[in-house]
Amino acid sequence: MNKNYLANTIFTVMVMLTSSIFWILGETRVDAYFSMYTLEYFVVKALLNPRRLYKDFLAFVLLAIFAVIVGYRVYEVLI
């Protein structure tokens, strides 16, 4: 299979597994799901390095949101 399509397929499987497992575990925080999606995206990117049409803006967006989530959690702990 084409490497780019394989990366998307693996990422899809990982996202579906994450959603199912977290749901079964009773996780209701959206940021927990999102953090896992971000982590999975970067794992797939690091392992398969799929080609992108433009700059990988999805990675920037995911990382930015992840940084905001982490910042917010740190802020909650500090206050």
């Binding site: 998307n8 996202v15 959603s19 996780e27 959206v30 799901y33 992108r52 999805l58 995911l62």
Partner: peptide
Amino acid sequence: IMPLVALWIGILVIGVSMFITPEE
């Protein structure tokens, strides 16, 4: 339903990832 919201977000990310994948 937050888990469902998270699932849709996952689908959104998958969709964007597929959209920015070039024809090989």
